[in-house]
Nucleic acid binder design. Sequence first.
DNA 1: TGGTATCTTAGGTCAGACCGTTAGACCATC
DNA 2: GATGGTCTAACGGTCTGACCTAAGATACCA
Lengths: 258, 258
Amino acid sequence: MAGARANEPRTIRSAVQLTPMEVPKASDVLANELRERILNGEFPEGTALPPERELVIQTQMSRTTVREALRILEVQGLVRIKTGRAGGAFVQRPDRDSVATSVSLLIRGQQIRLAALLETREAIEPFCARLAARHRTDTDLGRLDQANKAIADAEGGLAQFLQANVDWHVAVATASHNELLTGLMTALSQAIYAATENEDFVNAEVRRTTVRAHKSITEAIRAQDPDAAVRRMGRHVHAYAEAVLKVEERTEIAVPDA
Amino acid sequence: MAGARANEPRTIRSAVQLTPMEVPKASDVLANELRERILNGEFPEGTALPPERELVIQTQMSRTTVREALRILEVQGLVRIKTGRAGGAFVQRPDRDSVATSVSLLIRGQQIRLAALLETREAIEPFCARLAARHRTDTDLGRLDQANKAIADAEGGLAQFLQANVDWHVAVATASHNELLTGLMTALSQAIYAATENEDFVNAEVRRTTVRAHKSITEAIRAQDPDAAVRRMGRHVHAYAEAVLKVEERTEIAVPDA
DNA sequence: TGGTATCTTAGGTCAGACCGTTAGACCATC
DNA sequence: GATGGTCTAACGGTCTGACCTAAGATACCA
């Protein structure tokens, strides 16, 4: 060792490269384990997980840790926790609401421009209309008619109008029978609702136009005419977007990052 | 009181009507409060929240409750928690990863059909290409070229090919300069990656076709030709979807619920 | 039979202790 | 003057054990 040549370094540095390592927390370990089992279908929906104190015995972890794991799963929409006797953690499948929540957080957190929201809707919704025209059932049509009626009836109340509007758009997405698109549209509609809530551009004229457009789109869906549905929906959301942006122009939800 | 008429009930029942009330948990209250403040921009990104023990003093809650609240925010991607001295909860904005996680949970939990994933991509990605053609920068073009080169170079490794493929699609979304679409496409691409990971239909022929299609789309984006970009991307993702479904046919990710 | 009091089982909250990790200051070594 | 050891203080992570509260189950009584 000591007799190495003088010009060489005594030891070779950086011979191995390591990346930062993650040390999982106990609660994460348990949460991951339970999550995998749930998603693998090992526990059907509605199954009651063991009581916390039972999990403590089984896992040899403390109740604090067990509870944190359950809380993680609850936030992720994988279990619903009920109190009282015969309560506990019941297995649930994440639904559109959990995606909607997460997309809303992204929208609010990233200060997404209203223009970006409307653009995204222009991308998604015509396609929803196309699928709806293909797959709609009578139940779907009922929902569409009902929501559009609510829009026409919403005299005065802006909130009422906007909510009915959201309902109609979500109904279109539902009629597409694509759970993912439905989840995305739910989130998007709610976010647009929230963003346009304070606008006064929703006047009687806009409402009439909206009802008319919705009716025409609904008819295309009823007639199972995908091309007409996609065309009309495209025009509708594009016109709506232009109208909103014309009014807003400088009053975006927030300043865009880039 | 005691002299009330004999035929009348001692007390009037159901005199008032109340709807089922929700009693929020302490940790939810604190989590909501902090979430609102974070999303309102009250705490800039990177801000350190007070230490847990300090929050205990301020809120008069127990440390258990405070920690559960912080855990909720952590799962929602609003804070990052670091251990050790000068550690604590640091404010974060939810990014595309948090949406990707949530979409993955929806996909796995709802047993979403691969067909639905591909459909959704068909809805979103052509629109991304259109925006990319309008807004792309030189940096964007660089990313596209690099990713496509990686696809061509990925000899052998299926994982390598798929990852490079994801990178290219995400690069298109990034070039659209719409953060929301980018987030959605990231989530979607990863999910499709995961779903097609085990397929052997990705042969040399498919790869050549993919590279060719990507090149042609990239050129349209480079030439700032939105119509060509949307048309070519539409054809590409549709063809890819058909190819995948032809191979899969009966082997969906899982059995659809309905 | 129907209401009501009580029991029991579950989660929710709390206080307090101790452990593990980390930044920073300081010191020893080669 | 780099390198590495050591100590300390400030954090989050975990555990224990207790008590409170919600609510289904049950026994009891009118």
